[in-house]
Each structure stands twice: as structure tokens, then as C-alpha cells.
């Protein structure tokens, strides 16, 4: 009987141990279930947050696309009639500070202009289109838009950087008197425009003067040159040529002018600059407006 009693005792011990293991298992199982449920809840929340984020992101990117569309919509169509125009604008980020335009002021005068707001992004783009719209609609008080010096001085009065979120812009503005071929122009802190005459000679056109909005009370003065049939004028921004040709080596403006002056199209110049820059986006906005007389 001793052996039987011993076996029964061991059985009882094993049963107790089994019960305790089972209880532990039940606890763990409950914990497991709870963790799964919690995990699923977290997953649901994440999915919801992710969806909300995607919606916001989509809306923002749609709005940015709208802004880009707007900027491109105010850029003029290339002119097929003389003077013929061709242009290219490639922002370095989605929105840039470069913009340009040309329009007939009256039957005899035609304006060409290109401006570059410091910096990039929505802020720079907003100032850029504002300034372009002011030029296009001749919306500056008591200003003769046929006089580039007067236009730049009035812009400088209208857009002081202190009232434009510390932004300013560089500009080249020229007016062609078609009956005489006289081109009057003025620039503010902007790279020279490049004029290739029909005889192959090349001139750079600029006037001294700092960017619009930098210093109050500046006055800008226009100079003039003569334009003939077959001449070709290129308006550029600094981003169009400020690329590194080697680490620490910037493209020389003279080398750019040389290549630009014998280009057939803005696309050809972009390809050349991209080739020098190497892979990846250009560091600044590329903009080039070519006018053929």
C-alpha cells in the first residue's frame, strides 16, 4: 500500500502543478489577447492618422501644383510675330522666385523684363508674381512705363524689403521703341542681358544699381542702345549660369555669354548648363528669355 499511497501523492502533486501551469497559461493567454487587441487598436489609430496625413499632404501638393500652374499661366505665350520670343523657366525647387514677361505698352513701345526674388518657395513666388502683375498692368502711380529708370525707381519705392518679409528682387527691364529701333533699359542688381548683333558681335547690357527693395530712395537711370533686324537679346537670371564646373569652380560669366550668344534655343543652353552641373537638380532657378528682332 505504501507504493500505492506514494503514487497517489505524486499524482496529487502533478495535478496541482498542472493546475498552476494551466492558470499561468490562462493568465498569459489573457495578456496575449489583450496585447493583440491593443496592437490592433494602435494599428487602427496609425492607419487613421496615416490616412489623415496623406489627405493633408495630397491637399498641400495639389495647392502647390495650383500655385505652379498659376505662375506658368501668367508667363506669356512665345511670340510668333516679330519680335519673336522663346523662353524656358525651370525652378530649382517646386516654386521659385524667377518670373518674366513682355507686352506692348502702346502701338510703338514694347517692354521685356525678367526678375529674380531672393530665395525660393511660396514666399518668393508670391512676391515674384505680384511684381510681374504690377508691371503687366502698369500699376505704379505716376510712372511712365516707357522709361525703365522711372519703372525701377517706382518699384523700389513700392517694394521696400522691410515691408516684404525681408525679400527683395533683382530685375532687368527694357523698352523697345519699334519705329526707331531704340532699346532703353535699366537693371537693378541683375546680371546683364546679352545682345548678339546680326553681324555676330556681342554686347552685355546692364546699368549700375542694386536690387529692388534693398535701400530706400534709390534712383535708377536708363541707358539705351540700337536694335536692328536679325539682332538677338537674351534675358537671364543668375541661377541660369551659377553652376559649379568643378568642386569650388564656378562657371565664368564670360564663358556663359560666349555659349549663350551662339545658342539657337533656350533648351540648348539648359542642356549645356546641366551638362556642366552634372547629375541632380540645378542649384537655383534657370530662366532664359530670348527675343529675336
Amino acid at each position: 500500500m505504501d507504493a500505492a499511497a506514494g503514487a497517489e501523492h505524486r499524482l496529487a502533486l502533478l495535478e496541482a502543478e498542472l493546475a498552476s501551469v494551466k492558470a499561468e497559461f490562462d493568465d498569459l493567454n489573457l495578456l496575449y489577447q489583450a496585447t493583440i487587441e491593443h496592437g490592433e487598436a494602435v494599428e487602427d489609430q496609425l492607419a487613421e492618422a496615416n490616412l489623415a496625413l496623406q489627405t493633408t499632404q495630397k491637399r498641400l501638393s495639389e495647392e502647390l501644383t495650383e500655385a505652379v500652374n498659376y505662375i506658368f499661366s501668367i508667363l506669356p505665350e512665345p511670340r510668333k510675330a516679330a519680335p519673336r520670343t522663346d523662353w524656358l523657366l525651370v525652378p530649382s525647387t517646386e516654386l521659385g522666385g524667377d518670373s518674366f514677361g513682355y507686352h506692348e505698352i502702346d502701338a510703338d513701345h514694347m517692354a521685356f523684363y525678367l526678375l529674380d526674388v531672393c530665395g525660393h518657395g511660396v514666399g518668393a513666388a508670391l512676391l515674384s508674381v505680384t511684381a510681374i502683375n504690377v508691371l503687366r498692368s502698369a500699376a505704379l502711380p505716376n510712372t511712365d512705363f516707357r522709361d525703365p529708370g522711372a519703372v525701377l525707381s517706382a518699384l523700389n519705392d513700392a517694394f521696400p524689403m522691410e515691408r516684404q518679409n525681408n525679400m527683395y528682387f533683382t530685375i532687368w527691364y527694357g523698352v523697345l521703341k519699334r519705329s526707331t529701333g531704340e532699346l532703353r533699359y535699366a537693371s537693378g542688381g541683375h546680371p546683364p542681358s546679352v545682345l548678339r548683333k546680326a553681324d555676330g558681335s556681342v554686347q552685355t547690357l546692364s546699368t549700375p544699381g542694386i536690387a529692388i527693395g534693398m535701400l530706400e530712395g534709390m534712383s535708377y537711370r536708363a541707358v539705351h542702345c540700337m536694335i536692328g533686324d536679325g539682332d538677338c537679346l537674351h534675358l537671364v537670371s543668375d541661377g541660369t549660369y551659377e553652376v559649379e564646373t568643378a568642386p569650388g569652380e564656378m562657371l565664368e560669366f564670360e564663358a556663359f555669354v560666349e555659349r549663350l550668344s551662339r545658342s539657337e534655343s533656350p533648351g540648348e543652353v539648359l542642356d549645356w548648363v546641366r551638362g556642366l552641373n552634372g547629375p541632380g537638380p540645378l542649384p537655383d532657378d534657370f530662366s532664359l528669355l530670348t527675343v529675336r528682332f
Binding site: 533683382t170 537693378g188 542688381g189 541683375h190 546680371p191 546683364p192 546692364s206 549700375p208 544699381g209 542694386i210 536690387a211 535701400l215 543668375d238 564656378m250 565664368e252 560669366f253
Partner: peptide, 15 residues
Amino acid sequence: NNVKEVLAVSGFDNI
């Protein structure tokens, strides 16, 4: 020279 060039384009040389 190349810095002078940038200062000239920007009009900073005169100012």
C-alpha cells in the same frame, strides 16, 4: 576678380 564681378552685377560696388 570673381568676387568683384558679383559685387558689380549686384550694384554693391557702387553702394
